[in-house]
Design a protein around this nucleic acid. Structure first.
Lengths: 111, 111
DNA sequence: TCCCATACATAGATACTCTAGGTATATTGA
DNA sequence: TCAATATACCTAGAGTATCTATGTATGGGA
């Protein structure tokens, strides 16, 4: 069983973290881990390709930085990325609502 | 982009529908479609293999029925399936909480 | 008679995330 | 000094879940 912790919602999570400020991949992973209370402890093999994909899609832009001899690739949200985030958040809300409506048994006959 | 509408949460949805009463595959699909407001309009190639898998896992049991010349495979939840449902619902709740905690920007300093 | 809804099934394709491997530098502590 | 750990990046291939496409068969309505 591969974990698949983000279950198809990785993009919203990444976009949201970057919305709160530019960051590099490693720190995005840390932020995600902390903010989710450890639930989203995603491996680098998940994070980096995802960031590449989002940059490819023009939702992110990046620049290389050199800090203490270590190179970092700083990502920031584009306008397009901000729009995508809004859309993805809406999709998330709709998804939750749909699942909840299935999980909540219909009251058969209100008194 | 394949839809992947249930995004890793298919099992809870199926178990919950069956929790509300025994049903056959086709009607489970209809119930899911109706109860989700059309969001979970899952193809048969998703529903049937999933039900087989859940039966294989002993979460479901089934019997064949013949109604108006049409055969139906009626599934019902086992005790084990009920327990799995509870567990899955908890996992769902935790998942939602984790995503929400990422999507909700931290209040920097409460007044 | 033809089409649509009902009702089941499965093989192979697709897509997303993970595993596992690789490179390299800085820091800590034994 | 040397090893281990944390930082920081990367990718190929594996695995898994769901979908696409296709097949069978019956009943009912136009």
């Amino acid at each position: 069983m591969g974990s698949d912790k983000a279950k198809g919602h990785l993009d919203v999570l990444l976009l949201q973290v970057l919305k709160d400020g530019p960051a590099h991949g490693y720190s995005v992973a840390s932020a995600l881990r902390q903010r989710s209370g450890g639930m989203f402890d995603l491996p680098e093999g998940t994070i980096y390709p995802a960031l590449h994909r989002l940059e490819e899609a023009r939702y992110l832009e990046s620049d290389w930085e050199l800090v203490n001899g270590r190179r970092r690739k700083i990502y920031r949200l584009t306008n397009s990325g901000t729009a995508a985030l809004v859309k993805e958040r809406n999709r998330w809300a709709e998804f939750v609502a749909a699942v909840e409506s299935v999980l909540t048994p219909v009251t058969p006959r209100p008194a």
